[in-house]
Design a binder for these strands. Structure first.
Lengths: 213, 213
DNA sequence: GCAAAGGTGTGAAATTTTCCACAATTCATT
DNA sequence: AATGAATTGTGGAAAATTTCACACCTTTGC
């Protein structure tokens, strides 16, 4: 219980998606074998990942889809609403604010911020844009938990500092740079340029890909 | 040499960015200590990561910024042009096709695809949109290496199959689903919804974050 | 030209993560 | 009620990754 691999958390998200898909298909029962196949990991791995958090199956019978799904949502903290804000209303910030399925994914977009005077006060995708100076007050008033950092690379650290000062708990960092925050704030990088460069590496080094049977 | 950790490749991308930033600042020399601090890893880790690929520093003196930068670009395969295509011209695909800095990042957007008859033949952000049936021919003619998969979740596997059949070498998968491809094709997930769910988990489990001093 | 300080490269230890075998339990069938 | 097939949960082995100590090389200052 003391320490859980980061990779386990990523896989739990994958298992949850698979369970949601199974539930939508009306499938009531599943097994570590089936989850493993769809997630492209081993069945051992599925069972070990789940074992960090408890016992959710029935020996000999497998797992009940709605039950395991509910448990995974609880483990991941998705059985409660999360309020999010976008920091940086450039192309990417606008595209995200347009994203249609937020509510269905347990997250609620509550505010947008930018420090460009031309957009402050405007409405984008139905959301009013605040100036960065309003951050502390709006975060407090609207109970914002998580910030999407979609500012240019050069502005990322300063914006992150402002988010931390405003009392935000987690940051989804879309900027292609490592940002520095206190330990109690969790940062998840979302970095397609880095992914693109990793693809480049693995294309020119095809031998370095591990097998999967 | 036989096997290199995936995490090492991700860190190499980070080191390269730091070196580019140092070079832009006119800084000529650096050290594993400095790279480690900016990348938020240990100096041991930096040196070990580099050691997988050779010796790039001078004992007692550190690293020369332009030299190490050039070597990392070579290692990552960024000293050559890569041709990319976007598959799925919805909101996300359009936002990416608008992305202004592609050329500067060693990648060249060569084509856009969609299977919606309403957009096929149109021009988006200066790029003509092809139908999916044109994929094999266009990939071949334009020498496309990498596909950005920006279709809805339900369409992702079929689109990935089409990319593989067309002979693509790598896929940047923006769809929130694990796709299944042959071993010789490398897939990198770029999944902000998964990142968001990991943030949720770490916010409700603050004790599970490892320290860094 | 010598000594001291600074900093890389690397084998080995420590830690983390994954893999595996198997005991334990459940369900279906007769 | 008993047997056999199925499938979970888990302790420990194996593998992968990170951490570390230190030998070794360079530069700087005197």
């Amino acid at each position: 219980m003391s320490t859980i691999p980061t990779a386990t958390i990523s896989r739990l998200v994958t298992y949850l998606r698979i369970l949601t898909s199974l539930e939508n298909q009306g499938i009531k029962n599943t097994s570590s074998e089936q989850l493993a196949e769809e997630a492209q990991v081993s069945a051992f791995q599925v069972r070990k990942d789940l074992a960090y958090f408890g016992r959710f199956g029935t020996r000999g019978a497998g797992y009940t889809v709605p039950t395991l799904r509910r448990e995974l949502r609880r483990i991941l903290g998705l059985n409660r609403p999360w309020n999010v804000a976008i920091i940086g209303m450039g192309r990417l910030g606008q595209a995200i604010s347009d994203y249609p399925h937020f509510e269905q994914y347990d997250f609620s977009l509550k505010a947008c911020f930018d420090n460009n005077a031309k957009v402050i006060g405007q409405t984008m995708s139905g959301h009013q844009v605040y100036g960065m100076d309003a951050l502390p007050q709006v975060v407090k008033e609207k109970g914002i938990d998580i910030g999407f950092l979609t500012v240019p690379q050069a502005a990322a650290q300063a914006a992150a500092d402002a988010l931390v000062a405003a009392g935000i708990k987690g940051i989804l960092n879309f900027a292609p740079v490592v940002i520095n925050v206190p330990r109690e704030v969790h940062v998840e990088p979302v970095d397609f340029l880095a992914g693109l460069k990793r693809v480049s590496f693995y294309i020119i080094n095809p031998g370095l890909k591990e097998e999967l049977a």
